[in-house]
Design a protein around this nucleic acid. Sequence first.
DNA 1: CCCTGATTCGC
DNA 2: GCGAATCAGG
Length: 249
Amino acid sequence: MSWTDERIDTLRKMWEGGSTASQIAEELTGVSRNAVIGKAHRLGLQSRPSPVKPNEPGAAKPAAAAPTAAAEPVAPKAAAAPAPAPAPVVAAAPVPKPIERVAAPTPAPAATVEVDEDEDDDDASDTPVVAAPAAPAAPIMRSVGPGGFLRQAPGEQQAPITPAPPRRLVPAKPSPEMADKTSLLDLNDKVCKWPLGHPGEPDFHFCGDKVNPGFPYCVAHCGHAYQAQLPRRDRRPPPPLPFGGARAR
DNA sequence: CCCTGATTCGC
DNA sequence: GCGAATCAGG
């Protein structure tokens, strides 16, 4: 195979698009990875994030680099490659975030008179409930752990009776919307442990469906968790550039 | 070992 | 100009 204009064009675009020499060589049938690299350099398409770092600092490391007549004005290799970011997709392992400040769910506007419209079951009905002039709604700052647990704020700590850790995790499902969700403590071998949301977020919880027997997840999430991985060589850059017209083969 | 890109050098 | 061989790092 020779380097036709079209093939050179494809090479150039893929190279600049971040494809590896192997991928390019595979795309351009009939050439080796070395051929691609060699051609790329001859075309002047040098310098891309290479795993091999050229020793340049003045610490002197001539070594095996140029055994022949060196003294070449080595062009300063400026790396300016965008490098397509491989989307991490599922990430979200149940790893607690460091610390996140959130305002604690203050117990609703305190001093309000509850005008109940229709309390059919209430025993002490006729008594209009007057909320106590509760605490001056001090904005308590708490950190939130996984599963919606609230950590005690320093001021809330009980007297350290025993040499206990300064803070304890307090299971808290204060909000109704958290009540029926699977928190960390609800996990067992029978419920799906697929995380929903992100650790640290107030509504972070787990799937909780019945597991696919033998797996930590339900059937649906097993589908997400266990996917056949193609060999590198057979992978295509996700949404790559439409190189000079994608050639179908 | 696998991968990567860089470089050399005979053709 | 070409590319296999080799090198060097991850």
